[in-house]
């Protein structure tokens, strides 16, 4: 697996390295027959400081669980396998506990992530380590994000969707996080708030922070991300550079990524038939085989490995 890293950054230690991560939950079918459902399989991702890596996948592909695995806040019955490295050192349960909220920070999806009974300012202040200056630091962060003075004295239900989003971003801003995991920060926003949120995320990455941007919105991903990991049925099908998304998608490596790109309104607006498989379905071969336009008998029986092609990674026999 060592060969899979972006060559031009080889001299740097990656902020986050995820190798062959898999995650499953026990499930009780009829009676006491126990089985596991795999929600994430062989997931690979590398994030360098100052880089924004988008993880793009449709809903139900297990993206939020990915965030939880890195933070170490999975439910107790989750079974996790694979390697997680933070700055080259293994992320053990203990280390996750020490780092989360400090070196690794989460930007959650919605206003629901704020405690409904606590003023927003206080909720953000709770993260700040510097106990004497926390009010000033919080107010500065709010100001920087364009929140009116006095927003900190409001309760979450008094904020609009866009304001709440900015409060959540502020909580990542005031933390000393080097790695920020933004879990679907854009849905439900109007055009303006959408643009703002994205530029705020971009702003966050400028302080040499690494950002893992989990989203189903490929346009948002293309706008700010340096690399895009395409997540499908719990697997990484491709990790492409932003520049690869151009023209008719000739440079893209995986048929699914190509289909995603062509489905955009400004391209062909062509929608791929079928649905993403449920996590209970088990495939001996490639997960995308049932919907793939170029699939062969080999894809049905054998699972393609991740291979490095043209400065990106893909999991396809015919790339």
């Amino acid at each position: 697996m060592e060969n899979i890293s972006i060559p031009n950054k080889k001299n740097k230690i990656p902020l986050l390295e995820v190798k062959q991560l898999s995650l499953s939950f026990p499930q009780y079918k009829k009676g006491f027959e126990e089985s596991y459902i795999q929600v994430i399989r062989d997931f690979e991702l590398t994030i360098y400081p100052g880089e924004i890596v988008a993880v793009v996948g449709s809903s139900g592909s297990g993206k939020s669980l990915l965030a939880d695995s890195i933070l170490g806040i999975l439910p107790e019955n989750a079974a996790i396998n694979g390697t997680l490295l933070f700055k080259g050192v293994a992320l053990t349960k203990n280390r996750q506990e020490q780092l989360r909220g400090k070196a690794i920070s989460l930007i959650p999806q919605s206003v629901k992530a704020l405690d409904p009974l606590m003023k927003t300012g206080r909720q953000v202040q709770g993260i700040i380590r510097d106990k004497k200056d926390k009010k000033r630091i919080q107010e500065e962060a709010f100001l920087k994000l364009g929140l009116a003075p006095g927003t900190g004295d409001k309760y979450p239900h008094e904020l609009s969707g866009g304001m709440a989003r900015r409060v959540l971003i502020a909580s990542a801003m005031v933390s000393e996080a080097q790695l920020i995991i933004a879990d679907e920060p854009t849905p439900g926003l109007d055009e303006l708030a959408w643009e703002e949120t994205l530029s705020n995320l971009k702003q966050l990455s400028e302080g040499n922070r690494g950002i893992m941007f989990i989203t189903h919105d490929i346009q948002a991903a293309l706008k700010i991300a340096d690399k895009i990991a395409v997540f499908y049925a719990g697997e990484t099908l491709e990790i492409a550079n932003k520049e690869d998304f151009s023209g008719k998608g000739e440079v893209l490596r995986h048929p699914y990524t190509k289909a995603l790109w062509l489905a955009l309104p400004e391209n062909d607006f062509k929608v791929l038939k079928g649905n993403q498989p449920e996590s209970e379905d088990v495939f001996p071969g490639c997960v995308f085989e049932p919907r793939c336009p170029i699939a062969t008998g080999l894809c049905k029986t054998n699972k393609p490995d991740s291979t490095m092609i043209n400065n990106g990674i893909t999991r396809c026999f015919y790339a």
């Binding site: 965030a67 939880d68 933070l71 806040i73 506990e97 989360r100 909220g101 400090k102 920070s105 989460l106 959650p108 999806q109 919605s110 629901k112 992530a113 704020l114 405690d115 409904p116 709770g126 993260i127 909580s171 933390s175």
Partner: peptide, 10 residues
Amino acid sequence: EFIRFARAKG
């Protein structure tokens, strides 16, 4: 969600 976020905050 807010308990998840609180846990993510350490």
